[in-house]
Amino acid sequence: MSNIYVIVEHFKGQVEDITFEMMGKAKELGDVTAVLIGAKDLASQLGGASKIICVDDPSLNNFNPEAYCKSVDAVVAAGSPDMVLVGNTSMGMDIAAGLSVSQNMPLVAYATEISSGSVVSQLYGGKMNVESSVSGACVVSVLAGSFPADAGRSDGSPVVEDMAAPDLSGLSVKFRKLIEPEGGDVDITAQEVLVSAGRGIQNEDNVPMVEELAAKLGGAVSCSRPIVDNKWLGKTRQVGKSGLKVKPKLYLALGISGAPEHIEGMKDAELIIACNTDPNAPIFEYAHYGCTADLFDLIPALSGKM
């Protein structure tokens, strides 16, 4: 039976959903070992695994890319997993590729489907899937939301094994602090209606038009990441992987392509309507209704009907 290691992702004393998503999938593929770096007290939440390997040390209290990398590396080197699952998340990105080089194991990233010997990756902003065949042990980094989390939550009583931390003296990277986002004027996670603007709105001057539509619909404006990076709207309006997860009654996406990092934040909205001139935009796979009109025509047309 395959021996699958799942690297546990945790933050502020909580095991993150991605961990349970990976554990659920791993259980279908073989025998699951959860690798828990720091936060040993969280072992009680990992009943879905048959074994837990804990590495704990004061320098692992907060996520530290370098210290976590070294610890995962030591755990993987000491065992002989057939597959190591890591989240394709902000933390996981600091672990997977380094592990691939140090352990000389192939890495397949952006995985949405895994079976023994083959992995499907979602690439090109969600426009193409690529299946890879891998023989031998490998590292797979898994996109959040690919597998149900519930399948990974269960009440087993795994064997817990402590492993001494590797030498973590003389780290180059030191954790200083967490900076919480400033509260915005509007909490987009509490809105029933979100009108969301993407790069398709072209420039800052077009933001008010979207705001007006949102106001007419009794909701607020949210957006994709490039709008925030361009400083056209504040960070508190960003939906997605590095932004907020929203679940409004209506999510109206205007000029958003539907990159996986955006989808992660809005796919559970009750009603998704997308407007995008590109009929192949991935957003249409997640939307309930779609139109390929120009958003600059659709906005006035909608406004005119209210």
């Binding site: 193409m128 899937n129 299946e131 890879s132 009929p279």
Partner: peptide, 20 residues
């Protein structure tokens, strides 16, 4: 260390009802 065996367009899940 791995090989591409196939590239394919996403199947479009449930997919949106298109309004033209």
């Amino acid at each position: 260390g791995s090989e591409v065996s196939r590239m394919f367009k996403p199947e479009g899940g449930a997919g949106a009802e298109m309004l033209g």
